[in-house]
Design a protein around this nucleic acid. Structure first.
Lengths: 179, 179
DNA sequence: TACCAAGTAGACTGCGCAGTCTATGTCTGT
DNA sequence: ACAGACATAGACTGCGCAGTCTACTTGGTA
């Protein structure tokens, strides 16, 4: 993951694993198969779930935001993303698989959670899928982009997640009287 | 851009340009220098500006959203991003340069625009930089991620930008009486 | 004890590519 | 007419790497 598919030779991968090159080829038919398996295994590490339950909505969204950012913005999460993005044009079917089992899964969980909150009247009735997309975008986009480009991240502000959730809550607070 | 730095050989680049390999090396000392120059040139194509003026705020934000998405989510914008992201760990100073002259520049323009609207009372007073980050995240994150992973995009919904701006306007509408 | 599955070190092949070199055009200005 | 700058085709070198092959070791099972 650190060096990307093309940057890491099978010799170095084997050495790093403390294993002979032939042993790698005993387990995987090709370097590409090893790469795909590694990516596929890593997918579960970028999915975040929420259990649907009543309670303090903003706090639970803040917890979700921290969990999501911990996974996606960690050095491992960023390296996974980096390694993947460059290779996907060659591997379209892998891309669709990862999309379904990774980001799409997280998105589905969040949308269901938001849908529940809307039904309980804790959020304004609206398209929960769109709301989930907006929230994930606010939580991830800027900091991921900055980390990818600037390589070293200069401390992403302590209250970031709380501010983002506050923004989301304002956009989706239930109507108060006639607008 | 289509094949990434490692995927495109200098021979093929020269052939595609209808030029001899030596001619490439007459203009650039190395393949890497050619890559950096190409990226640096492409930066201006991902910057979006707004001129500060009064008027229908949502419509102007919608126009901005369309312009931003046209640049970042086009096949060229995505290929540029893809090619860049994989190589940045090797080229940290290039990454910082591009960040400053690309995304950061767009962000600065938007934040200034939002700041003006806040000062005029068209938006609630708040941190304009944070507001700009939220809006860009909502406009780009989901669709860019989906395009990067799924490779083929299944029509991103006609009213997308209008919905996003409506969400942003709700989050940042001026206070109406006591909240 | 004999056997076998799996691991190990390391040599080896073939290929693609960055970068160089040579020998040969082909314009432009004087 | 000529010189100098630049383009071109194509051969060539050296290197790194995917994948194979060989010869040897080891640990578990019957």
């Amino acid at each position: 993951m650190k060096d990307g598919f093309r940057g890491a030779s099978v010799d170095r991968i084997a050495a790093a694993a403390g294993v002979a090159k032939q042993t790698v080829y005993n387990h995987f038919p090709s370097k590409e198969a090893l790469f795909e398996e590694t990516i596929r295994t890593g997918v579960r590490d970028v999915v975040v779930e929420l259990d649907d339950a009543p309670g303090n909505l903003p706090d639970r969204l803040v917890a979700y935001g921290h969990a999501l950012r911990r996974k996606l913005l960690s050095p491992e999460g960023l390296a996974w993303f980096r390694a993947l993005v460059g290779e996907l044009p060659r591997l379209p079917e892998l891309g669709r698989l990862i999309w379904r089992e990774g980001p799409m899964e997280t998105h589905r969980h969040l949308a269901e959670f938001i849908d529940g909150a809307m039904r309980r009247g804790e959020l304004r009735q609206d398209d929960p899928a769109l709301a989930a997309e907006m929230l994930n975008g606010m939580l991830i986009h800027y900091d991921r982009t900055r980390s990818l480009f600037a390589v070293v991240e200069p401390a992403p502000a302590a209250q970031r997640v709380e501010q983002i959730i506050a923004c989301f809550m304002r956009a989706y607070q239930p109507d108060r009287g006639i607008q």
